[in-house]
Amino acid sequence: MNLIVDGIVFRHHPIGGVARYFNEILPRICNLDDEFKLTFLSPWEYRETIGLYSKGSVLKVPPFSRLTYRIPFLRGVGGRVETLLARSLSGLGNNSIWHSTYNTVPEFWPGMKVVTIYDLIYEIFPHLYQGPLGDKVRFDQKRAVESADAVICISETTRKDALNFYDINEQSTFVTYLGVTDSFKDDHKYESSLSIENPFILFVGERKGYKNFNCLLEAFSDWKMRDEVKLIAIGKPWDYEEKEFIVNKGIDDRVEVISSISDDELANLYSESEAVIHTSLYEGFGFPIVEALAKGSKLVASDIPTTREIAGDIPMYFDPHDSMSLIDALTIAIETQLSEKEIYDIKKHTFQYNWDNTAMETIKVYKSL
């Protein structure tokens, strides 16, 4: 059977969580099952390899969407031309599966279509994603999901949300959990040029909007232990509002942002931190959650359905709408000392989240069609 993977996400988000998902599962699918002949439709300018080796082929697709993006009346045309070209490169489509990395729908496709839903932030937080771009993402995802023969969801919470927002049959939906990258699975301390003042608490990832990082800044600024414990954030540099808040609260020497870091260095920080803080109002899965647990870190997390599903009772939960609740959880985390058995049990919980399982479950979805 032919498996066609449209690599559009590697054009717009080549190093994000979705790119990691496909980078991890595609080589495994090739290696685990010889029944599938995989063709990866790569963006023209994408120079990285996804490790298909001799068991898959790569076809380059010219960047029409990027060429027309800055021309308002052609903005939608480029993406459509790109999808049509990708469709034409894919052959007739008979006895084939089209698995888009980000909501493309091939025209006149006689084969099966699979789509993966990573989250529903555009539907759940429409006020954060207004205007033509937000409307387009919502339209594209709805069209891709409702026209798919199989819908893969990365958590049970995501599946429930999808059934709520889209007109789809529950029997066509499948949950395949994501995995933990190898760097976070072992106890090895990697070489690093980073020099971090101990002790510190750690925040990883995007901070704006539903990520709710402001709750952590507010809590940290009022926390009685802020002069003893630093806050390290991994992500983009502070924006103007964050800088202003940090300076006004007098915590500019107690918080630090690191914008360039390898997985190996991040693994070190997870292990060395006093606690990892996860403040989101919503998640489809949550890589920082499973990465922190895989390293045996104490986790302070917002009490939301996805985290309960993925992490169970392990985290110290707080109300994400109440900074005082977070302060209490931070204090408990700092004062709690984990035994070796407790650390092992935390790590053991993440054994179920591995990329081999994700690939095998994805193959089962393909074969169900």
Rank of each mutant, 00 (worst) to 15 (best):
L32A: 09
L59K: 14
I332A: 10
I232T: 05
I289G: 00
K236R: 11
I196Y: 13
E35I: 13
T157E: 11
F73C: 09
N214K: 13
E24L: 09
R20V: 13
V115C: 14
A267N: 08
L202K: 05
W355S: 03
R47C: 06
V151I: 14
T358S: 15
K208P: 00
D6G: 09
K348R: 15
S192E: 04
A311F: 08
V290H: 05
K236S: 11
I277W: 02
W238D: 01
N354K: 07
E291S: 03
L67N: 03
T39P: 00
F108E: 09
D186I: 14
E45I: 08
I29L: 11
K113Q: 04
N212W: 10
D263C: 05
V58D: 04
K243H: 15
P320M: 04
G76W: 06
S193L: 10
S297E: 06
A329V: 06
T83E: 14
V114Q: 06
E241K: 14
A359V: 03
Q130I: 14
I8K: 03
I8E: 03
L26P: 04
E156P: 04
F36R: 01
M360E: 13
I8C: 08
E274A: 07
S54T: 15
I261S: 07
A301F: 03
R47D: 05
E309H: 07
G179M: 01
P315A: 05
L266D: 04
P43G: 03
G131N: 10
A275K: 03
S90V: 07
H321G: 09
L217C: 05
